[in-house]
Write a protein that binds this DNA or RNA. Structure first.
Lengths: 142, 142
DNA sequence: GTCGATTGTGTAATACTATTACATATGCAA
DNA sequence: TTGCATATGTAATAGTATTACACAATCGAC
């Protein structure tokens, strides 16, 4: 799979996401890029569309946010699993081949032509669970 | 698990969803219930919150829509899988115990306390695939 | 029964997320 | 050069969800 060069806007958006510790919404990205000349949501969404199409960025459907791919551009695009901590907002991404096979097998048996698989887990990460004496340390992420 | 009685608004929203052939957005539900006295999105969202909390209704994150549970109120809430046809908009819901076990096992091993699992498949259902001579019959659902 | 707490409801306003429409620019190929 | 695809800028609008505040209904403790 080739990875085309990024345009200026795409690159700005991608690096904003890469630098972030948590997923960002399109409007947060917009705010962060005002100084770079961004002035409209569409500039962000257009860049995101491209980046998502190239699997360099993933969209987290359940929190309307975007995150840079953790796998240096994953190819097993069909089975990325995201564990989203509702406390600190951090996300771990992992690719689960077994799960992917399972889902694909179901689709085949049901005649469903699979375009995209979304798997998102919501809960509390280990770090936050250990943090039981610091419950108020981080703001709550929805 | 007990299934509390529904209030008037909850019941109206639930029956609207039960009667629908596809998932509905909150605002579509609102339009359908104007005649019943609904006038504000909040009336819909409040009812939906309750219904989702009781697992009588599921929220489809990837299409911002809601659908009545296909299992007469499913209890295996952690592993509902939704296959969403992007052509006709219909959804099939199925509960996959193996997949659920798999996900739970991962969460345990990673110290992630799982609150909710979202698994949504996007693609084209068998009926629509067979429909290759009627491509324009149905409007495209995102 | 009354008090108070909880839950449900009505309405308005607002916030957040995403797209359409149209104009302009840039790069590459025939 | 022309033509086409892609990228960009800007404004307006559409679609989704929540906050805030007021009031009503229900239920249990007393």
């Amino acid at each position: 799979m080739t990875t085309p060069e990024l345009t200026k806007n795409q690159s700005l958006v991608f690096h904003t996401l890469s630098d972030a510790k948590t997923p960002l919404t399109a409007y947060v990205i917009l705010e962060q890029l005002r100084d770079e000349g961004f002035s409209s949501p569409l500039q962000v969404y257009r860049a995101l569309d491209k980046l998502v199409g190239q699997n360099r960025v993933h969209r987290l459907e359940s929190i309307n946010s975007f995150v840079a791919c953790a796998h240096e551009c994953c190819t097993e695009q069909a089975a990325a699993v995201f564990a989203i901590c509702e406390k600190c907002g951090k996300v771990s991404e992992f690719a689960d081949a077994k799960l992917a096979r399972h889902v694909k097998a179901w689709a085949r048996s049901d005649g469903f032509q699979l375009n995209k698989t979304t798997i998102e887990l919501r809960g509390e990460c280990q770090a936050c669970s250990n943090d039981c004496y610091n419950n108020e340390k981080n703001e709550k992420h929805r």
